[in-house]
């Protein structure tokens, strides 16, 4: 009997169930490590860090773009952590959220979206200039990549940027999203991310859905519905604003004059 072959068959045809078991194991390891730090580092923060390390290993081994989910044995992680179940779980966190809190943060929440998109875009354009990119299409694409890794390629396709520039813009967005995941629990306290209002502003400023989802989970899960609420408007608004900057070529050109 080919036991290994049979195990492989069961695993590959039941990917999602295997993912449930594996994530449970990661959570258990993470919360045990958290106890060792006497709870100073939150268990979910450690779990997210472990997840990122596993994703790095997966990417290094498989050469694919989906982290550990590119390894056949762990393919179910792609379903469990894919956008459908992720968004479904995000929506479910709204059960128990308070509408009054959301109304209270209405204006700063909306403002944070615009400020977040424009500031990320400017940062991207400035670094693109420093690294020697000068055409409006390149600058707009890399600037949009610093907004999120969805807005970058959308803008790149619209401006006709080269695939090398689009790759840089996606990478900038992925880096941003991962930095948000890792940095949020550490920066939350000094920057006052401890109430529903600042969580909504945070969601609007950072925008990356995966980044804010993980960053807030690692900080305080009760903040999730508020941060996710604004973050969910970010990518769409980002595509809109970045396409405007492309038509008129104001933003990248304006900044390149300063540069």
């Amino acid at each position: 009997m080919d036991i290994l072959g049979m195990i492989e068959k069961v695993v590959t045809s039941n990917g999602l169930v295997v993912a449930f078991a594996m994530v449970g194991l990661v959570m258990w390891v993470a919360y045990s490590l958290s106890k060792l730090t006497k709870g100073r580092i939150h268990g979910s923060a450690i779990a997210i860090l472990l997840g990122l390390i596993l994703a790095w290993i997966g990417g290094a081994v498989s050469g694919g773009s989906k982290g550990l989910a590119d390894i056949t044995f762990f393919a179910g992680l792609g379903t469990m952590g894919g956008s459908m179940l992720r968004d479904y779980a995000i929506v479910s966190t709204a059960f128990g959220a308070r509408f009054e809190e959301i109304k209270k943060a209405g204006l700063p929440g909306i403002l944070s979206l615009f400020v977040g998109i424009i500031s990320a875009y400017i940062v991207g354009v400035i670094f693109a200039l420093i690294f020697g990119y000068h055409t409006a299409a390149d600058l707009a694409t890399i600037g949009a990549g610093a907004v999120t890794f969805v807005v970058g390629p959308v803008t790149g396709a619209a401006t006709g940027a080269s695939s090398e520039v689009i790759a840089v813009s996606i990478a900038a967005g992925v880096v941003k999203s991962i930095v948000v995941m890792i940095a949020t629990p550490f920066l939350a306290k000094p920057f006052g991310l401890n109430n529903s209002k600042s969580a909504m502003v945070y969601g609007g400023l950072m925008g990356t859905t995966s980044g804010t989802a993980a960053g807030l989970a690692a900080t305080d899960a009760r903040l999730v519905p508020y941060g996710a609420m604004t973050a969910t408007f970010y990518t769409g608004l980002g595509c809109l604003l970045c396409s405007l900057s492309d038509h008129q070529r104001y933003l990248p050109l304006g900044i390149s004059f300063i540069g």
Binding site: A19, F20, V23, G24, V26, M27, A30, S44, A47, I48, L50, G51, L52, I53, L54, A55, W56, G58, G59, A60, S65, K66, G67, L68, A69, F74, L77, G78, M80, G81, G82, L85, R86, A89, I90, S92, T93, V174, S177, I178, M181, S210, A213, A214, A217, A221, V224
Partner: peptide, 15 residues
């Protein structure tokens, strides 16, 4: 939610 987010982080293109 948190376990799903952990699964999501496992699928990020960290490399």
């Amino acid at each position: 939610y948190i376990p799903i987010v952990v699964a999501m982080t496992c699928g990020q293109n960290v490399y």
